[in-house]
Amino acid sequence: MQKLTLPDFLTWLRIVAIPLFVAVLYFPEDWLTVRQANVVSMWIFIAAAVTDWADGYLARKWNQVTPFGAFLDPVADKLMVAAALIVLAEKGLVDPFAALIIIGREITISALREWMAQVGQSKNVAVNIFGKLKTIAQLVAIPFLLFDGVLFGLFHTNPVGRVLIWIAALITLWSMVVYLKAALRPNVGS
């Protein structure tokens, strides 16, 4: 059995936080107002995003990269983003079509990576810049959508979040095309 490292623990913490993240948004109003629930859930999501960065950084810095951690980290990210998008769509805070594009892409690319690993071509669908840009756009958009209020008296976050999530959806589609083209490219060495 593999020893649990701090980076892997942080990844598990993100997964465990998902039910809390969702539950907070559905707490009765005598526990938390809608406004309070939105802010608490936003901070849970931001904390998850920070631990996503931290676990990768620490794993590399401390030479604690594990095969299980490499598998679990993207799963934790996708679960948190999918949970956020489903709840946001259900509450009318995001266009369900944008949420469907993002979640559908994640499922498609995960299946593609699994298939490519089975045929020994996983390097063809390694994470690229488009996947990283997609993640950044999502991790910025979702807190704006969760906050759903006026920020610093300057602007309402929902319209900004809606634009950002559509930008994320478009980058998501583009990155999916890039991954699919890379996967379908004939292997030069065969």
Score class of each variant (00 low, 15 high):
Pro143Phe: 00
Ser122Phe: 03
Phe68Pro: 06
Asn128Tyr: 01
Ala183Trp: 00
Ala126Met: 02
Gln118Ile: 02
Gly131Ser: 08
Ala141Gln: 07
Gln138Met: 02
Phe97Asp: 15
Phe27Tyr: 08
Phe130Met: 15
Lys91Pro: 10
Pro186Lys: 11
Gly131Tyr: 01
Gly153Glu: 07
Leu13Ser: 09
Leu85Ser: 05
Asn63Thr: 03
Lys181Pro: 10
Ala111Ile: 07
Ala37His: 03
Lys134Asn: 08
Leu4Ser: 10
Leu32Phe: 05
Thr51Ser: 09
Trp31Asp: 15
Phe27Val: 13
Gly104Arg: 00
Val177Phe: 09
Val16Ile: 05
Leu100Asn: 06
Gly120Glu: 05
Leu6Lys: 05
Met42Gly: 04
Val87Ser: 08
Ala49Met: 04
Phe130His: 14
Gly69Tyr: 01
Asn158Thr: 15
Ile109Leu: 08
Arg185Gly: 11
Asp8Arg: 13
Pro186Tyr: 03
Ile46Gly: 07
Ser175Met: 05
Ala168Glu: 09
Leu4Gln: 09
Val119Trp: 02
His156Val: 07
Phe147Glu: 08
Arg60Ser: 15
Pro186Gly: 13
Leu164Lys: 07
Val50Tyr: 03
Ile109Cys: 09
Lys3Pro: 15
Ser190Met: 12
Leu58Tyr: 02
Leu72Thr: 04
Leu25Arg: 04
Lys3Ile: 14
Ala126Tyr: 00
Gly92Cys: 07
Ala183Ser: 06
Val24Arg: 02
Ile142Ala: 10
Trp43Leu: 12
Val87Gln: 03
Ser41Phe: 00
Arg35Lys: 14
Gly149Arg: 00
Ala82Lys: 04
Phe155Trp: 04
Phe155Asn: 12
